[in-house]
Amino acid sequence: MQYFLELSCSGLVRGSIYALIALGYTMVYGIIQLINFAHGEIYMIGAFIALIVAGVLTIYGFSGVSILILAGLIATIYAAAYGYTLEKIAYRPLRNAPRLSPLISAIGMSLFLQNYVLLAQTPDFLSFPSLIPDFGFMEPVAHIMGSAELVILVTSAVAMVALTVLIKYTRIGKAMRATQQDMTMARLVGVNVDNVISVTFVLGSVLAAIGGVLVGSYIGQINFYIGFMAGVKAFTAAVLGGIGNIPGAVLGAMVLGLAESFAAGYISSAYEDVFAFGVLVLILILRPSGLLGKAVKQKV
């Protein structure tokens, strides 16, 4: 039983990181039907910025939690700027182009950002300071859920609740929902669609950067390539939950994280990816639009 709890906990931790990234995929897809393949790179850049800021702050004598909060804050602001710029230069000019063009542009941006970090920083792994303090839990709680895991779960939950509140109860949230339903109509009733799209990218990037900072301090190492695999997994989670659907992305991410964790724990970790993608295939066969996705009627 304890083993089951331990595995569930690792699955949920992994799931919440996937969810933080998957939300960016699904929000962007919901509004402009674009799969933003460069999104994983934003997550990676968030982690790198946090590492650099943490290094500088350590020199100036800051410590522990204050570094985590400051570095996280600066990393999210930076990543938001990257997301905003990304949309401006790579996707906005292609807004009215055929659907394939922005997709190719997205893949190009992904490669560009990866290689940019590789050249500007380093191809090697870098050590990431463990910014999350050890709360010194008692046994056996410490085995089931360490302090880092708890911080990750709480932070992602708070971020997701904040996102829900923003979308449900604010003016910009209302505008986002309107744009998602029908972009032309939203524009006709006076919604500034360009702004809404920018805000969507910024929100997605903020969440991804939070994920990057949390993962960095959880596993203690980053390199320029971490965004790729995390991006692929998060995209899978978004598809699993029904792409374009916000609660779906979170649910899909949790299912994926738990599936991987249980596969590793009860069968073999050599096959965890096989099980993760097996779950995806199975769900897409049974429910082609994803767990919570609705089948979209083609507008004629």
Partner: peptide, 14 residues
């Protein structure tokens, strides 16, 4: 076996 580049290895550690 574990997958190099996986996000974390906590399941294996458990």
């Amino acid at each position: 076996g574990i997958t190099p580049g996986a996000m974390d290895y906590s399941a294996v550690v458990q």
